[in-house]
Amino acid sequence: MAVLTERPAAPVRRRDRGARTLVNRFLGYAVLVFFALVFLYPFVIQLGNSLKTQEGAAANPLSPFPDPLTFAGFERIFAGTNFPLWLGNSLLVTVLVTLGRVFFDSLAGYALARLRFRGRAGLFAAVIAVMAVPGVVLLIPKFLVLNQLGIYNSYAGLIVPLIADAAGVFIMKQFFESIPVSVEEAARIDGASVFRTFWSVVLPMARPALITLTILSFQGSWNEFPHSLVSVQDPHLFTLPRGLADLVSGSLGKGTQYPLKLGAALLATIPVAVLFMIFQRYFVRGANEGADKG
């Protein structure tokens, strides 16, 4: 490039361009900082106001500084609501769903990528078709099935329907196809069974895809709301999003107790936020994976 830009007119133009670059840079940063505020300040407000008194939050909601500072909101979260219970349920659901998805989706993805069996092409087409089914239209249908199977309002109803998903199968299949066959072939010739080869040769090579899938599943099931809405009714089976929604629309009513509500929402956000900070590039990969499947 450097060679190309050396042209006769360069000296005049370059000084000109230098000034313009500076202005551009300044404008660029101004835009970035402005939008960083737009995207992050709501979280700052959330934190600040969760530490205020109710009056303080109502009087000056824009300020991030609690004055006076109080932990009353958080104390009431733990003493006055079922928060610890929701947290426990969310953890249980998330861990089981994530384990289930990682295991079952890899198994199916591997079969679709590598094993030759009758009906494979049709199955893959079905996976693609199922990915297009929008979740919200399944609200009533899912309730019907859970009801019919007798697992409505139980942990089974909360967990089992989520432990495998088409998008995860797709991600794993695509990944398995991108790694060379030769290693597995060698293992197979040495006499290892298909499952053995999959478990101890292929899976260890699939670490990046497994991490992506783990993160997507964790985030998805931790934040999952509509499914818990139609699968359980008993407050003892509420997950965090369900409990939060109940807190806002139900038991406490609107317009009151903002420090408590904001604090509870904040606590529910922290696990995914921490995960995001550590495994950011896998989140990015997951987002673009989503683009690819569309």
């Binding site: 995207f39 407000i45 106001n49 985030q219 509500k261 904001l262 929402a265 956000t269 989140f283």
Partner: peptide, 18 residues
């Protein structure tokens, strides 16, 4: 810019209610 996309829709809705 990406962070809001990964958080819980319910938790974020609570913040926006406020």
């Amino acid at each position: 810019f990406y962070f809001p996309s990964v958080t819980s829709s319910v938790a974020i809705s609570v913040v926006f209610l406020f």
